[in-house]
Design a protein around this nucleic acid. Sequence first.
DNA 1: TGTTTGACGGACA
DNA 2: CTGTCCGCCAAAC
Length: 102
Amino acid sequence: MTANQEDAFEVLVWQWINAIPTGCVATYGQIAVLCGMPRRARMVGRVLAKLPPDTRLPWHRVINSQGRISNPNPARQLERLAAEGTLMINGRVRLATYQWTP
DNA sequence: TGTTTGACGGACA
DNA sequence: CTGTCCGCCAAAC
């Protein structure tokens, strides 16, 4: 895969995450599929990992397929989710309730 | 150039 | 339910 395609994928990831409505969530794998790159959930995570701390992207709406937080700093994400009404029960989001479907 | 490391996911015990 | 294992793939060693 060329560097250009990598960049394109990164931009797509930004755009799809930006499209997640307030109060909803999406999984890493889901974002990968939406970007037309199935099996690249880890790369979605890598894109998020290099976001600047002050980004306005709603990265907190991206969780793993178990409805759990994969972010190494869960407290921040938990707070942001709670702030928009996405509640976690026993450390997990009910995907059946909150998962976004475009 | 070979190995390890992740903001992953699904299968299985 | 939890823990383990394996496939995944670019980056960092």
